[in-house]
């Protein structure tokens, strides 16, 4: 089992790489689709802005590659948001692998923007493989100002003024809005689940 960790050049991938090391999960850093031959699953991490990240992915031919790939794919944070069709952050079209649009988190009285900190995983689908041995109400670390509203692909959600998609899945494509690499024991469990699902 080898995970290909996609390096777009504009995201911090060190944290995810270290988390995979701590979990004892075999991985390689891949820069373009031609380097993924030995990988049986892929992680698209993401920090930064949607527009810049999409431009980098386009340059390397990732959007086409994802459309025909059937290996499990996990998007993290911005990487999850890019799986949808469109992002309000910079008004950009994104990968379109999951139906839906990413919106700006509403400014809500009494809540600060962005959504930053540990939030509880609320309602979730008990058969979601990423959540094996994770309990309702456990906390994960979120940092984001845009969000995917709860929709058909949502398998776990968090409450922050709006109902935020915390984990989404459509077939072999999944994403976490929170950072499993920074979510303590719960996050490590989710990464291990990804490696075995």
């Amino acid at each position: 089992m080898t995970i290909g960790l996609i390096d777009t050049g504009c995201a911090n991938i060190a944290s995810v790489r270290f988390a995979l090391e701590r979990a004892g999960l075999d991985h390689v850093v891949v820069r373009d689709p031609s380097e993924t031959g030995d990988c049986d699953r892929l992680i698209l991490p993401g920090v930064g802005a949607a527009g810049a990240a999409m431009a980098r992915l386009d340059e390397r031919g990732w959007p086409e590659a994802f459309r025909t790939d059937d290996r499990p794919l996990l998007g993290i944070c911005l990487g999850m948001q890019l799986l949808f069709e469109h992002s309000a952050e910079g008004d950009v079209d994104t990968l379109g692998l999951i139906p839906g649009r990413v919106e700006k988190l509403p400014l809500t009285e009494g809540l600060v923007w962005p959504h930053m900190g540990w939030n509880a995983l609320q309602a979730f689908a008990s058969d979601e493989p990423l959540l094996r041995h994770v309990s309702l109400g456990e906390y994960a670390y979120f940092v984001h100002g845009f969000y995917a509203p709860v929709g058909p692909a949502t398998v776990a959600q968090a409450d922050y003024g709006a109902e935020v998609s915390a984990i989404v899945r459509s077939g072999h494509i999944a994403g976490c809005q929170f950072h499993p690499e920074r979510s303590g024991r719960v996050g490590a469990r989710i990464l291990s689940n990804f490696a075995s699902c």
């Binding site: 060190a14 944290s15 950072h179 690499e181 920074r182 303590g184 996050g187």
Partner: peptide
């Protein structure tokens, strides 16, 4: 910084 990042699983 990378020594810390390697060891801990919180932000």
């Amino acid at each position: 910084v990378s020594r810390v990042a390697r060891e801990i699983d919180i932000p």
